[in-house]
């Protein structure tokens, strides 16, 4: 239950600064704000769709700061050649969502 989050503090800082640069409203980014950023990765859309499925933990069609970090983490790992998992492994679930 007390598993460290795989998103390291220094990575979280980087993801947070990207998050803030996208103009979150009420601490939340809508899908249409996040989509172009993920498309920028040049990953296939079906992969990005799965990244979204895994990171929008409450399935409200928007990402908060922690959900966005999960999305970015998965995108960066995918760019390094790691497969995107079919379901979110516990260490990837933000501590705030457990």
């Amino acid at each position: 239950v007390d598993i460290p989050w795989v998103v390291k503090p220094e990575e979280k800082l980087k993801f947070d600064s990207i998050f803030d640069s996208l103009g979150p409203v009420g601490g939340i980014l809508t899908g249409d704000k996040v989509k172009p950023v993920l498309l920028n990765s040049k990953l296939p859309v079906d992969i990005l769709g799965r990244v979204w499925e895994l990171s929008d933990i409450d399935r409200d069609g928007m990402l908060d700061r922690d959900e966005f970090s999960v999305a970015m983490y998965l995108v960066y790992r995918a760019l390094e050649g790691e497969p995107v998992p079919m379901s979110l492994p516990p260490p990837l679930v933000p501590p705030s969502k457990r």
Partner: peptide
């Protein structure tokens, strides 16, 4: 907000 027929909250679907 999402295309017609979409109850999906996923902008990539």
């Amino acid at each position: 907000q999402y295309p017609a027929g979409g109850s999906s909250t996923n902008p990539f679907l």
